[in-house]
Design a binder for these strands. Structure first.
Lengths: 236, 236
DNA sequence: CGATAGTTTGATATCCTTCAAAACCTGTGG
DNA sequence: CCACAGGTTTTGAAGGATATCAAACTATCG
């Protein structure tokens, strides 16, 4: 429960009542094994899932069989916030590690946020941070070459994990393959591999055994053109 | 005022009080000439702007001087919803035509949505539709070649305009240049031009004098892999 | 009518993909 | 403990899509 509340309180101050009623609505938890879909494209779920532990990826299925990744989900993120206002999912959320989610029913969450405007504002704010992240991805895919593009994603993941206290020293765990890097970046895994090699040889970062080591964050951010502003919410 | 209310009511039913108090908060309007910034990256505006008439583009400035476009704004869209919960803008909104916006102060809108949860929910829902559109752009930029990519954007704009009743027959007005198409698609204007030529020769669509003519929407959507689901909100 | 912005076309360069295969892990059953 | 299978990483060679550079053409607007 905590990661969700912590996330919501970044932007909006909640009352004790807000917090406890949120806990009540998200009372039950559920576990998904690595590789399973938490929610599936075209489904019409009755539950809203909030990430408590583990990693997931949002992806869309394409006719050619590829599954581009549009976001990485970490503790505190809602898997399927849209479900409140619209039935049909337009993406899947797949567990990249074993995942623990808190679940709320659609109806209960509609009722809760209909009674507690601060909570509705907090969720609104969280949706806007997600939108800002999507904008950064659009720029990344549209205007940067593979080299800066990969560096940018590494900077983003490093920054987000660091806010969750999941970076120790210069290392953090990214539980996915070069193939999945490619799905998120619009690159083939072959090319991801070559770019990783270059970044490693240039002593900026390395990715080995699912752990990312940032060797020179200043140079890496310069190469990426990374500005962490879009991730940070100021308290209102 | 109407386009904003119409937009919000797609997902959430509002009371008469909701509507009139929203009108009161967004009482004043302002006009921006073509080419002007409605809001500017890194600014800390006190006002929130809602599009009433005209077109704008959301763009981010890059060190190399380019200004990639991350979204097109039409009547009913908020220009800078984030402003409620976070001070610093991470993008600019530039008027592509003369634009009329309704303006609300940040404080008044925070207060209003803090008192009227239905409104907060409605804005939350609108933010989610925007996020869904961003996801579609991410997939478009990441996985499709220039040909399908341009077709997909044309399909999206056609569908959105058609919901606003701005399509007459098979024609609609897109008030921007091939250069700006390119900025939205991550392509050079030269290449946009070549792809437009091909789509025209293949009798799917043409873009001439700022008007888009869709000649064969079925074939165009097939080429684009376009599924309009992400634009449509079901009533909750 | 001239100036400026936008469109069109061609030639060449670059980046990334595709195809292919070898090397390397990691877990599993014998 | 070993052998093996499947997935992942690494490297090479060749092809294709898109960028870049350059110039002519066309609209638009004072």
């Amino acid at each position: 429960m905590n990661p969700l509340i912590a996330r919501l309180e970044i932007a909006v101050r909640l009352s004790d009542d807000d917090r406890t009623s949120l806990q009540a609505v998200f009372a039950s938890t559920r576990r998904f094994e690595k590789g399973r879909d938490v929610v599936r494209e075209a489904d019409q779920p009755d539950q809203v899932y909030a990430m408590l532990d583990g990693w997931a990826a949002r992806c869309k299925g394409l006719p050619d069989g590829s599954r581009p990744i549009t976001a990485f989900l970490m503790p505190g993120d809602l898997c399927n916030g849209e479900t409140l206002f619209r039935r049909r999912m337009d993406y899947s959320a797949v567990a990249l590690t074993p995942v623990i989610v808190a679940t709320a029913t659609r109806d209960a969450l509609i009722r809760l946020t209909g009674e507690r405007p601060r909570l509705a504002q907090a969720f609104w704010s969280a949706a806007q941070v997600e939108a800002a992240t999507s904008r950064a991805w659009i720029v990344n895919l549209g205007r940067r070459g593979a080299y800066s593009r990969l560096a940018h994603l590494a900077c983003e993941l490093h920054a987000r994990l660091s806010r969750l206290d999941l970076v120790s020293g210069s290392e953090c765990n990214l539980p996915f393959t070069q193939e999945q890097f490619g799905q998120a970046l619009g690159l083939t895994s072959v090319h991801v591999n070559r770019v990783l090699k270059r970044l490693r040889e240039e002593r900026m970062m390395q990715f080995h055994n699912r752990t990312l080591t940032v060797l020179d964050i200043d140079r890496l951010r310069a190469v990426a053109g990374f500005d962490p502003a879009y991730l940070q919410e100021d308290v209102a």
